[in-house]
């Protein structure tokens, strides 16, 4: 059990990281990374939904008929997303407005469905919960890194706190959508280049 937990953690955070290794969940990875505060909340939301829906799928794994499992999983995920949406609207209305439709789009985030399919439905609930949580954190980690670069260079701030001061010329491109593509592409490039060097 303990070694299992360790392998899951390692896999989900790094060797099979959902964003940079499996290229899943890219939509939101690009859309919410302009400010670190937004990214952090989004990451937490995704982690919550992944962990709990994976666990729920695992609890119900002997009950759900195979043929309709996709539909059932989607409904489970959508229910948790509604919870996240209501909580955000109640306690963090400003960030909820910033994230806009991307909270609802957690439903179609391929990472969550992927974890339910690949792990949740064939493993016990606690391990599934842990796996979902680690995948969510692996996703959050990459997103935080991207938004760190984009907010620092685009606004000169981190979490809205000025870091670089007045001498810093803001890179407008880092605020524009295009930079999200470039930053993610460069991260994937570096990781894959190191990977292929290692395997040679």
């Amino acid at each position: 059990m303990r070694s299992e937990i360790k392998t899951i953690t390692e896999k989900d955070l790094w060797t099979e990281n959902p964003v940079i290794r499996q290229i899943l969940g890219i939509c939101s990875a690009l859309a919410v990374t302009n400010l670190m505060a937004n990214t952090f909340i989004m990451g937490m939301g995704v982690t919550f939904v992944t962990a709990f829906s994976s666990m729920t799928v695992s609890f119900l794994r002997h009950v759900i008929p195979r043929r309709i499992r996709m539909m059932v999983q989607t409904l489970i995920i959508a229910s948790y997303v509604i919870i996240v949406d209501i909580i955000l609207k109640a306690f963090l209305p400003e960030i909820s407005a910033n994230l806009g439709p991307y909270v609802g789009l957690i439903i179609t985030n391929c990472i969550i469905m992927g974890r339910c399919e690949a792990y949740g439905q064939s493993n016990p609930p606690l391990l599934a919960f842990w796996d979902g949580m680690m995948s969510g954190l692996g996703y959050t980690m990459v997103l935080m890194f991207i938004s760190f670069i984009r907010e620092l260079m685009g606004f000169g701030t981190l979490f809205g706190i000025p870091i670089l001061g007045d001498w810093w010329t803001r890179w407008t491109i880092m605020v524009m959508p295009a930079s999200a593509f470039f930053v993610l592409a460069i991260i994937i490039w570096i990781v894959q280049a190191r990977q292929s060097k290692k395997s040679v």
Binding site: F181, F182, L184, A185, I188, Q192, Q195, S196
Partner: peptide, 11 residues
């Protein structure tokens, strides 16, 4: 090599 596939498509 590292840029092939998704990395290149993103750029």
């Amino acid at each position: 090599k590292g840029l092939q596939g998704p990395g290149f498509a993103l750029i």
